[in-house]
Nucleic acid binder design. Structure first.
Length: 106
DNA sequence: TTAATGACCTATC
DNA sequence: CGATAGGCCATTA
């Protein structure tokens, strides 16, 4: 595999490690990446999304478990459907049950 | 190279 | 309690 850069690579690796049926927050990923303030960069990394086929960006949500309405790769509804298909519980139309589906970090 | 922006988070008024 | 401002890091133009 080709290492493009430290931050991006790390973020991608972490996102790819998210188990099926669970979700992770930007801050959490940033924390695992090495810096809690990378949360913004995490969003940027996923925004670039060079490997959207291998990177489950739909499993990444903000700190409240709310889906990003600004991006919505295929529409907010699409992301919600993908998460539901993996067994992620929702508390409402755009919010996931972090209590049950939050990634523990392996 | 510099400046501006961003799928965020936290603290303060 | 609700809304606003600022700050952090990296990428893009």
């Amino acid at each position: 595999m080709i290492i493009i850069g430290n931050t991006f690579s790390t973020i991608y690796e972490i996102v790819k490690k998210i188990p099926r049926g669970k979700v992770a927050t930007y801050g959490q990923i940033a924390l695992y990446a090495g810096n809690p303030r990378l949360s913004q960069v995490v969003g940027f990394a996923l925004h670039s999304n060079p490997d959207r086929e291998n990177i489950p960006c739909h499993r990444v949500v903000n700190r409240f478990g709310d889906i990003s309405s600004s991006f919505a790769f295929g529409g907010e509804n699409e992301q919600r459907e993908l998460l539901l298909a993996e067994g992620v519980e929702f508390v409402n139309q755009t919010k996931v049950n972090l209590e049950k589906c939050l990634w523990d970090g392996e």
